[in-house]
Lab assay of single mutants.
Amino acid sequence: TELRLDINGREIKVDGADKETLKELLKLAEKNNDEKAIRIIRHLLER
């Protein structure tokens, strides 16, 4: 399955993203107070 998050109005594919990319996405999600995106990205970073 493909995991996509809508961050800042942009749909971004997050599964398969490297750790650096995920960290950047996490910063974006935190800036937007997007709890769902934050939770998902943190979960991916823990893998």
Rank of each mutant, 00 (worst) to 15 (best):
E30H: 07
A37Q: 01
E24R: 07
D18M: 04
N32D: 11
L28F: 11
H43R: 07
N32V: 14
E35W: 07
L25W: 07
D34L: 09
L44S: 04
R42K: 11
L26A: 04
R4M: 15
A37I: 06
E11I: 11
L45N: 02
R4Y: 14
T1F: 13
K36V: 10
L26T: 01
N33W: 11
D34W: 06
N33H: 09
L45W: 00
T21C: 14
I38T: 11
H43F: 06
L3Y: 02
I40N: 03
R42A: 10
I7R: 00
L22V: 03
L3E: 15
H43V: 11
L26I: 06
L22P: 00
A17E: 14
E35D: 09
D6Q: 14
I38A: 13
V14G: 02
T21L: 14
R39M: 13
D6W: 05
N33E: 08
K13W: 14
G9R: 00
K13A: 10
E46M: 06
D34I: 06
D15R: 04
K27E: 13
G16T: 14
E35C: 10
L5G: 12
E30W: 06
R4Q: 15
N32Q: 09
A37L: 05
I41D: 00
H43Q: 13
K23P: 01
R47N: 12
E46W: 05
T21I: 10
D18P: 04
V14E: 01
K31R: 11
L26G: 02
K27L: 12
E24F: 09
N33M: 10
L22N: 00
D6H: 14
I41T: 01
I38Y: 03
I41E: 00
R47A: 13
V14L: 05
E24Y: 13
E30T: 09
R42G: 08
D18T: 06
K19S: 09
T1H: 14
I40K: 05
T1Q: 09
L45E: 03
L26Q: 04
I12V: 13
E24W: 07
D18K: 03
D34Q: 05
I7Q: 01
L44D: 01
L28V: 08
K36F: 11
I41Y: 00
I12H: 12
K19R: 11
A29F: 06
K36C: 07
N8E: 06
E20S: 08
A17S: 14
A37E: 01
K31A: 12
K13P: 06
D15Q: 06
L44R: 03
V14I: 07
N33V: 07
L5K: 08
I40M: 07
A17W: 07
L28N: 04
T21P: 02
D6M: 14
R47W: 10
T21A: 14
R10C: 13
K36H: 13
R42W: 03
K19W: 09
E20H: 09
L3M: 06
N33L: 10
L28K: 03
G9S: 01
D6G: 04
D34E: 13
K19Y: 10
T21W: 05
L44W: 15
I41G: 00
V14W: 02
E2F: 03
L5R: 02
E35T: 09
E2H: 08
R47G: 13
D15L: 04
L5M: 06
E35N: 08
E2D: 15
R4A: 15
K36E: 12
R47T: 12
I12W: 07
L25H: 03
D34G: 02
A29D: 00
K19P: 06
D15E: 05
I41F: 00
E46F: 05
K31C: 11
R42F: 04
I38E: 07
N8T: 02
A37M: 03
R39P: 04
K19I: 13
V14F: 04
L3H: 15
K19A: 08
D6A: 11
E24V: 09
E46D: 10
K36A: 12
K27A: 11
K13V: 14
N33G: 11
K23S: 11
E20T: 08
R39Q: 12
I12P: 00
N32P: 02
K19C: 09
V14Y: 01
I38K: 05
D15P: 04
D18W: 02
I7H: 02
R4T: 15
I7C: 09
L25S: 01
E11G: 03
E30R: 06
R42Q: 12
E20K: 09
E30L: 09
R10D: 13
L5S: 10
K13M: 13
R10H: 14
L25P: 00
A37T: 05
D18E: 04
L28Y: 11
E2P: 00
I40A: 06
R47M: 13
L45F: 02
I12F: 13
D15K: 04
K23W: 07
E46Y: 06
T21Q: 10
T1P: 15
K36Y: 06
E30M: 08
K31F: 12
L44T: 07
D6R: 11
E46L: 07
G9V: 01
L44N: 07
A29L: 08
D18Q: 03
D34M: 06
D15F: 02
K19N: 07
A17Q: 11
R47L: 12
A17M: 07
D18V: 03
D34N: 06
R47E: 13
I38R: 05
K13G: 04
R39S: 13
E24T: 10
E30F: 04
H43P: 07
D15N: 12
T21N: 10
K19L: 12
L44I: 12
D6L: 14
I41L: 12
N32A: 14
G16W: 12
L25Q: 01
T21G: 11
N8L: 05
I40P: 00
D34A: 13
G16V: 15
L28D: 07
D34S: 09
I41M: 02
G16I: 15
I7T: 01
K13S: 10
E35P: 06
L5E: 15
L5Q: 09
R10F: 12
A29I: 04
E24D: 11
K23G: 08
K31M: 13
K36L: 12
I38Q: 08
D15V: 06
I40L: 08
E2K: 03
N33C: 10
L5W: 01
R4C: 15
L5D: 15
T21K: 12
K31P: 04
T1K: 07
T1I: 07
R42S: 10
L22S: 00
E11H: 06
E20Y: 04
A37S: 06
K23D: 07
L25T: 03
T21Y: 09
N32M: 13
I12N: 01
K36S: 11
V14Q: 01
L3R: 14
R39K: 11
E2L: 03
G9I: 01
E2Q: 05
G16K: 13
